[in-house]
Amino acid sequence: ADFLSNDDYAVYVRENIQVGMMVRCCRAYEEVCEGDVGKVIKLDRDGLHDLNVQCDWQQKGGTYWVRYIHVELIGY
């Protein structure tokens, strides 16, 4: 899907992401590398560009918070 802005994409992720879902990092962020796959373990839905998504990352080996714009949804 094509999104006009980071805000549009962040809204899409916020409306669709669920705890337990698998996500792929589509934009490297601090300790999380692009392409790493993680399981969503906690969500904080306050802002669009806060650290909203806590995942247990496979490559990184452990949990880390990222923003909506850092992840793509790959289902369960």
Rank of each mutant, 00 (worst) to 15 (best):
A10H: 09
Y76M: 10
D56Y: 10
L4E: 15
K42Q: 15
S5D: 13
R27C: 12
D7V: 03
H70T: 04
Y68D: 11
L48H: 07
Q59W: 03
D46W: 10
R14K: 08
R27S: 11
L48K: 10
V37T: 11
L48R: 09
E31P: 11
A10S: 07
Q58I: 05
Y12G: 09
I41E: 03
W57F: 08
G38K: 03
L51V: 08
A10K: 05
Q18S: 12
N6C: 07
R24N: 09
R14V: 00
N52Q: 09
V71T: 05
I69H: 14
D7Q: 07
E30I: 00
C55A: 11
T63Y: 06
L43F: 08
I69V: 12
G62T: 05
C55F: 02
Q18H: 06
T63M: 13
H49I: 00
L48E: 13
A28F: 05
V37I: 14
M21K: 04
V32L: 08
Q18W: 04
M22F: 14
D8H: 09
M21L: 06
C25S: 02
I17M: 08
E34W: 08
Y64R: 08
G20Y: 03
A28L: 01
G38T: 02
E72I: 04
Y68M: 04
I17H: 01
K60H: 07
L51E: 09
D36G: 01
E72N: 03
G62N: 15
V40D: 03
D56E: 14
R14L: 05
S5E: 11
I41A: 02
T63G: 03
G35A: 00
G20Q: 04
E30F: 11
K60C: 09
R45G: 12
H70E: 15
L73S: 01
L4C: 12
E15N: 11
V19Y: 03
A10L: 07
V37S: 07
V37E: 06
V40K: 03
R27Q: 15
Y9D: 07
D46Q: 15
Y29I: 11
R27Y: 08
F3V: 04
V13R: 01
Y29F: 12
G38Q: 01
V19L: 13
Y68K: 01
N16Q: 10
G47P: 12
G61W: 01
G47S: 12
R27V: 13
M22K: 15
G20I: 06
R67G: 13
D50W: 02
Q58E: 10
A1S: 14
Y76G: 15
Y9P: 07
R45L: 08
A1D: 13
V23E: 00
D56V: 09
E31F: 07
G61Y: 05
K60Q: 10
C26L: 12
Y76N: 15
D36A: 08
L4A: 13
D2L: 05
E30S: 09
I17L: 11
G47I: 08
A1T: 13
L4V: 14
D8E: 14
H49K: 07
M21A: 13
E72T: 12
I41N: 01
A10D: 06
A28S: 10
Y64V: 11
I69A: 14
V32C: 02
K60R: 12
V66N: 04
E72V: 01
Y29W: 08
L51T: 04
N16G: 05
V13L: 08
V32G: 00
L4K: 14
W65E: 01
C26D: 00
R67Q: 15
V11E: 13
I41R: 08
A28R: 09
V71C: 13
M22D: 07
D44S: 15
D56K: 14
D50G: 15
R27I: 10
D56Q: 13
A28P: 10
K42T: 13
F3R: 09
Q58Y: 02
R45H: 15
Y29V: 05
D50F: 02
R14G: 07
V23N: 01
A10E: 10
L73F: 12
C33E: 15
D44G: 10
N16W: 03
G38V: 00
G35N: 15
D50H: 10
V66A: 01
V71S: 00
I17W: 01
R27P: 06
L48S: 11
E15Q: 07
G47N: 13
I69Y: 12
W65R: 11
G75P: 13
V23W: 03
N6S: 13
N16H: 11
D46I: 03
G20R: 04
V23Y: 01
N16P: 03
G75L: 04
Y76H: 07
G62L: 07
R24I: 03
Y76L: 14
R24T: 10
W57N: 03
E15D: 09
R27L: 08
V40E: 01
Q59P: 04
R24E: 09
L43D: 03
C26M: 13
M22L: 13
M21Q: 11
E34P: 05
W65F: 05
C25G: 01
L4M: 11
Y12L: 11
A10G: 08
K39I: 06
K42C: 08
E34T: 11
D36V: 02
W65M: 03
Q59Y: 09
N52R: 09
I69N: 08
V11A: 15
V40S: 03
H49S: 09
D44Y: 06
A10I: 07
D50L: 00
H49Q: 10
G20A: 00
L51W: 15
I69M: 08
V13I: 15
D56G: 01
N6M: 15
V11C: 15
C55M: 00
D46M: 13
E34H: 11
V19D: 00
S5P: 14
G20D: 04
V40W: 00
Q59E: 15
R24M: 11
D7E: 06
D56W: 09
L43M: 04
I41T: 14
G62I: 11
E31Q: 13
Q59M: 04
S5Y: 06
A28D: 10
K39Q: 11
Q58P: 05
Y64W: 04
Q18V: 07
Y29A: 08
T63N: 05
G35S: 04
L51H: 06
